[in-house]
């Protein structure tokens, strides 16, 4: 079975005054109908990789790759008009903080209907029904009221659920979730994750789950990519995360406090220059 998304040697470069800044330096992976976790510290290029797949790197940023295929078709350097037709309808994205990622002057309902109508060409009434259905699917109790509400009138957890409803309404095959729970209270985090998991699972979608939270990814995902300095340093099944071999992954794991194995002092991650250039563990 061919993967939903296949990426080889993806690079994102930004020209700066002091030369080229390489945000992503040769990332490759295949995504099937699974939950793929992408973990790394801030600045490791995980967000940029996600935006490059969506064709959202704005000039002067430059995206190159050996291969970037969606369902077997190359989406590398597609003209903007064709990329636009894929965005939202086949690949979508949920971002970090619903406070900023929802348009403050548009009602929730209009924002959900907008993308859906664009890709399906449905009537207003049908789009309204779909929006209400999606709001119910993300377990919003009073969808009629929320439909007419503005983003500032809903809570953060609700905002993120609205975001999920909005992005899943046109039925994409792939969802990139870029730190979808980092801005939420711990109490609503699990609820949002559960909803996300259920919807993505039921639709047989591929999910790219970007996060810096190792434990979360270990619990939630099937497979994990560890990124460091713009490249993938290790790739392994999520349940084997604690048996990671790369020193960076081990270092990250060791710097987390554990209830079952208390230590006097937590280890501090010491980065080594060699990690930047070494090929990924599995590939060697």
């Amino acid at each position: 079975m061919s993967p939903l998304l296949s990426v080889r040697n993806l690079r994102v470069d930004f020209p700066t005054r002091s030369g080229m800044f390489e945000a992503v330096r040769g990332v490759g992976f295949d995504l099937g109908r699974e939950r793929l976790g992408v973990v790394g510290e801030s600045g490791s290029g995980k967000t940029m990789a996600g935006r490059a797949i969506l064709g959202l790197v704005r000039p002067p940023g430059k995206v190159t790759a050996e291969r970037m295929e969606l369902g077997g078709e190359s989406i590398l350097n597609l003209p903007e008009s064709r990329m636009r037709r894929l965005r939202g309808s086949r690949i979508s994205m949920v971002m970090q903080d619903p406070k900023f990622s929802l348009n403050p002057v548009m009602t929730v309902g209009r924002q959900i209907m907008e993308g859906y109508r664009l890709h399906t060409g449905e009537s207003r009434a049908a789009a309204r029904d779909k929006a209400l259905e999606m709001l119910r699917a993300v377990q919003i109790r009073d969808p009629e009221r929320v439909f007419d509400a503005y983003p500032h009138e809903v809570s953060g957890g609700m905002g993120q659920r609205i975001m999920i409803a909005m992005m899943l309404a046109p039925d994409p095959e792939i969802l990139i979730a870029d730190e979808p729970t980092s801005a939420l209270d711990v109490s609503v985090r699990n609820e949002v994750l559960r909803i996300l998991d259920r919807l993505v699972g039921a639709r047989g979608m591929g999910l790219i789950f970007i996060s810096h939270d190792l434990n979360l990814v270990a619990q939630f995902c099937d497979r994990v990519l560890i990124m460091y300095a713009g490249r993938v340093v290790e790739e392994l099944p999520a349940r084997d995360l604690h048996a990671a071999r790369h020193p960076y992954t081990q270092g990250l794991l060791n710097s987390l406090p554990r209830l079952d194995r208390p230590v006097e002092r937590l280890a501090v991650l010491r980065r080594q220059q060699g990690w930047r250039d070494a090929p990924p563990e599995g590939a060697a």
């Binding site: 969506l54 959202l56 037709r85 965005r87 971002m95 900023f100 990622s101 348009n103 993308g115 664009l118």
Partner: peptide, 12 residues
Amino acid sequence: AEYVVTARVKGL
């Protein structure tokens, strides 16, 4: 702003 990225993600 981030909501502009959202709008682009939607394919507008």
